[in-house]
Amino acid sequence: MAGYNIPDTDYMVSGHVGCPGCGATIAMKFALKAMGEKTMVVIPACCWGVIAGPYPQSSLKVPILQTAFATAGATASGLRAALDMKGDSETTVMAWAGDGGTFDIGIQALSGAVERNEDFIYVCYDNEAYMNTGVQRSSATPFGSRTTTTPGKGWKKNRKKNMVEILAAHRIPYAATASIAYPEDMIRKFDKARRMKGGTRFIHVFATCPTGWRIPSEMSVKIARLAVQSNVFPLYEVENGVKYTINVEGSRPVADYFKIQGRFKHLTDEDFEKIQNMVDKDWELLLRKTSYFDRLT
């Protein structure tokens, strides 16, 4: 285990039906390594609704409650309340939703739960489109991407919604990004979130989708890493909405990340320049927040 401090026990099992190279399954594997057996997972409609196993199977060794698309935040709130009433403070409730269930249809229930500072971990594994239904755009789909509802020349011209900032604005104890390409960092964040009982912890996990992104399955982790290395998906943590910590500083050009993916293959150098500019500005903003709040605290 050179260099890694990664728990050996897995609570995900083989034989699930995730596509080859599925980033969302790697994400679950890492998350549960940190979470352990005293975890209940709430899953709304998403790829994991299928990967978790059809009747009579389960791909997890912890309890799963599947629920309606828009409801992860609310169902998790109810489950938490029930456990509290039963006197079970040890078990952690972990809502596990895709980007559709988090950024779009589920944002209301999530915001409601987060405003109440419900005591659970909410995880968005973000594969940047509605993959389970066949790659339709979501508000997590990045600028420049083709999907089946942003096809051809109609590739997405809008920016991706910045979910962590929305969550941080609720001033919850912990909001963080994580990547399947950085297992140690990701597991540390889940472990930290697990220990921070008493409020909502939100973790936004970047999870590649070889099928939807039109990338070779073996590049799944590599591309997730490139997203971090190019600051397209910065790894950072926000405590109480104000204390920003950047975990990795990227230095690669965004084109390194974009050019190897089929969903972006129509983009021109001019587009890359525009995207680079966006990413640079976002990064600059993140740095400013980090130093601004540092001065305040």
């Binding site: 209940m40 709430v42 409650l65 629920t67 309606a68 828009a70 409801t71 609310a74 169902t75 998790a76 709130s77 109810g78 489950l79 938490r80 309340a81 029930a82 456990l83 009433m85 039963k86 229930a109």
Partner: peptide, 10 residues
């Protein structure tokens, strides 16, 4: 959804 979550825990 919340009562479904709670009821599922018995």
């Amino acid at each position: 959804a919340a009562v479904i979550g709670a009821s599922s825990a018995g």
